[in-house]
Design a protein around this nucleic acid. Sequence first.
DNA 1: ATTCTTAATAAGTTTTATCGATACCTTTTC
DNA 2: GAAAAGGTATCGATAAAACTTATTAAGAAT
Lengths: 316, 316
Amino acid sequence: MTITQLRYVLAVAEHQNFTKAAEKTFVTQPTLSMQIQKLEEELAILIFDRSKKPIELTEVGKKLVQQARNIVNESERIQDIVDQQKGYIGGEFKLGVIPTVMPTLLPMFLHNFIKKYPKVKLKIEELTTEAIIERLHDGHLDAAIAATPLQNENIKERVLYYEPFVGYIPPSHRLNQKKKIDVTDLDIDDMLLLEDGHCFRDGIVNLCKTQKSYDEDHFQLESGSFETLVKLSNEGLGMTLLPYLHTLDINEKEKSNLHFFNEPSPAREVSLIYHKSELKMQIIEALHTTIAGVVKGAITFQNVEIISPIAKIKSD
Amino acid sequence: MTITQLRYVLAVAEHQNFTKAAEKTFVTQPTLSMQIQKLEEELAILIFDRSKKPIELTEVGKKLVQQARNIVNESERIQDIVDQQKGYIGGEFKLGVIPTVMPTLLPMFLHNFIKKYPKVKLKIEELTTEAIIERLHDGHLDAAIAATPLQNENIKERVLYYEPFVGYIPPSHRLNQKKKIDVTDLDIDDMLLLEDGHCFRDGIVNLCKTQKSYDEDHFQLESGSFETLVKLSNEGLGMTLLPYLHTLDINEKEKSNLHFFNEPSPAREVSLIYHKSELKMQIIEALHTTIAGVVKGAITFQNVEIISPIAKIKSD
DNA sequence: ATTCTTAATAAGTTTTATCGATACCTTTTC
DNA sequence: GAAAAGGTATCGATAAAACTTATTAAGAAT
């Protein structure tokens, strides 16, 4: 048994296809076939059920894959340990970011970071929380920025900042008179929300659900960007909630429509999250320091109440 | 980097000597030299400081060895997983046993076990608790039977049985009149103890220390076996304490000198212990079931108080 | 029936792990 | 201070292995 063989098994298990897996591992398909056969022979088991199309893992195969992932991870961590010892911070690093954080946070720290750690090749991808969790598991991401807490036992979280929700209330709205708003003022039926799949939307739903029971069918207008929400709101289609950092770069006229919450303001917790195996921890540390440092200047709220980003089951 | 290379590193780290390590890994010394050099080159570090005699690990080397042990362990667990799936229980299994358990417990279950699991090649070694812990760590033992709790975070424990202490009090002794004795009756100054290094001795010292402070210099007579202790006791040199299972096979005349404790009787907890990596777990399960089953019939005490087997620091 | 997809097999090449012999470097011994 | 001993690195050869290209085989799709 070799680490290479385990890698091959993982690749085939992932792609359910020898040919694709061969490409990804930079060898030819016969190499994969043979090496995996050799491993199967050595262990005297079948790892894959080749009669199924596409190919499937056998029962033993599934367990083996778990352990194989373990071993491959741990073996990669060796280079990690060596790098750490040398104080070297570099190499490829894949970072996932949720859509509602991407446009505001990235410009704030990216330049700083690549200047400070020029050897790190950051590959940033915009992904939903769901996709992030999946990719942290299978190692396609090294870390991610998402709203927390996630309560996922395989994922560790390091808080970056707390970002308050801010009401965007057009003049026509019933709440426009109030200087500061309260959570109890909110009515999910006259609020514009992001489309399904955004955890920021889930957070707001959680927030409002604590106020009154709601009827799911009432949502009518939904969009993928806050910019659109603001415009729709200006048209008198309802109020909306924005994450604080997004309120920093809207134009002056619209700024007058912003209404903060009375403290403790509802807020989302934004964290750097990573797999519990703690691979590439030096880079994660570096990211955390850089981002937390940059954001510290931008957000100065003190008293906040964290809203869970996880969609709760609707019928209870 | 290959698993084989990591094995070689572990072997050299253990023996601090390439030639010996080569023997243990069944290859020639040049093979080791070259493979380790290759790994060092790949990682661009020195794992060993070859200028020191005997050879030493570098700082990075030490960290690498930890991780290497991890990986090698986890890779061995793969065969384990496969065996488990097949329901196969067999292979070599190295079991350590503390001296004060060895002669009484072994005959009780050994025959049963090898009959039930003929494919397991049990290699049993008598070792002190200290040596057992060390060997569980470096993988020279697969499991062991020892007095617990050990409070060692890398070692897991599965209790086999609670074995009460029984007083052996010769007719000449002041306590011989009492039918049942109490912990408070004990005076470490007129007790015969096993020689240093036995955890049973440590247990008794702990037991007595709760009664009164003691002067270490007072111990005068010490022996390596309970048989000798009983004989010395018969000569009027003091009383002694025996673990319950040992009292089952002393002769009739001497049995009359046995005095049980009032309940809750002090007792030692005897457990099957193993490394937290849980390698060869099927065999460990099998051993646990067999031993616990056999002992259940022999020990029927209900109300016991567990005495720690760990020698507490003397000055406090 | 034939075409496509995809895994297995075969045969040949390259790479690598290992070995035996030996060189080389310390440390110990006399 | 020369010789012996103990230990590691290096060299050249060899056998094993890993990998490649080309081809076959087996199902699924057209």
